[in-house]
C-alpha cells in the first residue's frame, strides 16, 4: 500500500465514528425536514411545505421571535449578574479565590430537573417568594404573577444558566496579565480608570462569548417552559417537542429545529470567531 493510501485509510478509520454518530444524524434530520407525514406515516419527499407552513402560520414565527427575545434577556441577565461575581472572584487571592470559583462552578453540575422543581416551589402560588412578600406586607395575598407565564420561564432560566456565564467571564479576566493592571495603577490610573480602559476592554470578548453561550443553552431548553411556562408560556423548543408527542409531525418538528439550528450555528460561529481573535 502506498503511503498516500495509508494516510487516507487512517483518516477514514479515525473519522468513521464521529461521522456515523454525529454528522450523518444531523444530515438525516436536515433531510427529514423536507419529508411529510401522511396518515401517521413518514413519507420521504423533497418538499418545502414544512418551512412554508411555518412562515405562513400566525403563531409560529411570533413564538420564534419571542423565544429569541427571551433568550437574549436571559443572556443579558447572565452577564449583568455574572460579570460582577466573576470580577469579585478574580480580585481575590490564593485559596479564597479558588474556593469562590468552585462554589460558583458546583451549581453547573446540580440536577437540571431539580433546579426547575426548586424554582417552581419558590415561584409558585404557595411558594416561598409569595409567602415572603405576603409576610412583608408587599402583597395582600399570594399571586400567580411569578408562575406559569413568561416571567417564570425567564427567572428560572436566568437562575439555571447563570453559572454558565460566570465561568467564561472569569477565564477572560484571568487571562489579563496582572502586570498590565499594576502598570495602569502605577501610572496613576484611578481604579475606575483602570477598570474602564484596561480590564473591561480586555474581558469584553470573553463576556460576549459567555452571553452567547447562555443564549444557545436557553434556546434549546424545552423542559423549563413546559414546567413553569403554563399555557401562555410557549417557546419554539416547546413547540418542537410537542411535534414528537401528541402532534406527531416529525418533519415539521425537524423543519422548526433546522431553523433553530441555523440560529444556534450563527451564534456559535460568532462566539468561536471572538474567542479566536482574543487569543491572538
Amino acid at each position: 500500500m502506498s503511503p498516500r493510501l495509508a494516510r487516507i485509510g487512517l483518516f477514514v478509520a479515525a473519522a468513521s465514528a464521529p461521522v456515523v454518530f454525529v454528522l450523518v444524524p444531523i444530515a438525516a434530520f436536515l433531510i427529514m425536514s423536507f419529508w411529510r407525514v401522511e396518515t401517521s406515516q413518514l413519507v420521504p419527499d423533497m418538499t418545502v411545505a414544512n418551512y412554508a407552513a411555518f412562515f405562513a402560520s400566525d403563531t409560529y414565527p411570533r413564538v420564534f421571535i419571542e423565544t429569541l427575545q427571551l433568550c437574549a434577556i436571559v443572556a443579558v441577565i447572565g452577564v449583568a449578574l455574572g460579570y460582577p461575581i466573576a470580577y469579585l472572584i478574580w480580585r481575590q487571592h490564593g485559596r479564597l479565590r479558588y474556593v469562590l470559583l468552585l462554589l460558583f462552578a458546583i451549581p453547573l453540575f446540580m440536577s437540571y430537573i431539580v433546579k426547575i422543581y426548586t424554582m417552581r416551589s419558590i415561584l409558585g402560588l404557595q411558594g416561598f417568594l409569595n409567602q415572603g412578600l405576603v409576610t412583608l406586607g408587599i402583597l395582600d395575598q399570594p399571586s400567580l404573577l411569578f408562575i406559569y407565564n413568561r416571567l417564570a420561564i425567564l427567572l428560572t432560566m436566568a437562575v439555571i444558566f447563570l453559572p454558565f456565564a460566570i465561568l467564561p467571564i472569569y477565564l477572560s479576566l484571568e487571562r489579563i496579565p496582572r502586570s498590565l493592571v499594576h502598570a495602569s495603577a502605577d501610572l496613576g490610573g484611578a481604579p475606575l480608570a483602570s477598570f474602564r480602559y484596561v480590564i473591561l476592554p480586555l474581558s469584553a470578548p470573553g463576556t460576549i462569548v459567555g452571553a452567547l453561550f447562555v443564549f444557545v443553552l436557553a434556546l434549546g431548553d424545552f423542559i423549563t417552559p413546559q414546567m413553569v411556562g403554563g399555557p401562555s408560556g410557549f417557546t419554539i423548543g416547546r413547540v418542537i417537542w410537542s411535534q414528537f408527542g401528541l402532534a406527531f409531525n416529525w418533519p415539521f418538528g425537524a423543519a422548526m429545529a433546522s431553523l433553530l439550528l441555523l440560529v444556534a450555528f450563527v451564534v456559535i460561529s460568532l462566539a468561536a470567531l471572538i474567542a479566536r481573535r482574543q487569543r491572538v
Binding site: 434530520f29 443553552l217 434549546g220 414528537f244 418538528g253 425537524a254 429545529a257 433553530l260 450555528f265
Partner: peptide
C-alpha cells in the same frame, strides 16, 4: 456538545 441538545436529540432520534 455545542449544539442545542434539542437538535442533537432530534437528529439521533430520526437517524
Amino acid at each position: 456538545f455545542l449544539l442545542p441538545p434539542i437538535v442533537t436529540g432530534l437528529a439521533l432520534l430520526m437517524f
